[in-house]
Amino acid sequence: MYRLEELLIVSIATMLDGLKHVAVGASSPVPGAAALLARSRSQGSLRVSLLGSRRHNAFTDGGKELFDCAAQGRIDAFFLGGAQIDGEANINLVGVGDYPKAKARFPGSFGSSYLYFLVPRVILFSLEHSPRVMVPRVDFISAPGASPEGVYRPGGPYALVTNRCVFAFRRKTRRFRLLTAHPGEDLASIRDNTGFEFDAPERVPETPAPSEAELALLRDRVGREIAEVYPAFAGRLWNIEQGNEAEIPAGSTEESIAARFH
């Protein structure tokens, strides 16, 4: 037995095997766990930069370092979501309806307008595979899925992983192709829930189930690691109560600061 999240984590981790540096942005527990799983079986060859973490994040030059790193080609994979995603892999993190007076307003584009161009393997991730998310055309392009020739663009969409299936993105045709369907889903159910057209094989394979070894890693080491940044997620999924975050010092703040500064 395994949870949907575990299936998604393992599906994403497979796409990261063999890479050298994977970065994970804010509000991304499933991609974060996938990156840590890929690292744990990489025998030390994969570096993970998990935003919001002290232990799994080596950046020391402030908020800009991730972006500078990406522009130089020092990051192989990153993850983006979308309140809307369309068939050309355009993503919308801003709002539904006319801009700026949106019918529904979301937080904003974060670094997507930039990282989508520069990170070679951007994996789109959504836990809501429905017609209102998978739309024919996004209302606002936070970041375009493809660019005209001549635009400097070493990066872009690689795959779309949802609660129903896994798509690959083909840059040449600017279309998604269905790779696998999760247990309980088939081509018809996926088409019903997808507002855009996509390619599909005649027979859609099932997304491979996590192995016992993968589940054991997830439920122990990876779970404890991801709990530092996403304690609620790790608690809900694996009953891991305490993260391995440095304990908040007891006593007054002044005392704890004084202790740090001799």
Binding site: G63, K64, P100, K103, R105, F110, S113, Y114
Partner: peptide, 25 residues
């Protein structure tokens, strides 16, 4: 969701200039 921000956008109470992280840096 940020409730007061969302409301201010809906009622056009604030002028919004959407940006992207590295552009601000």
């Amino acid at each position: 969701a940020a409730p007061r921000f969302t409301e201010a956008i809906k009622s056009a109470q604030i002028r919004m200039r959407d940006s992207t992280c590295p552009a601000i840096h």
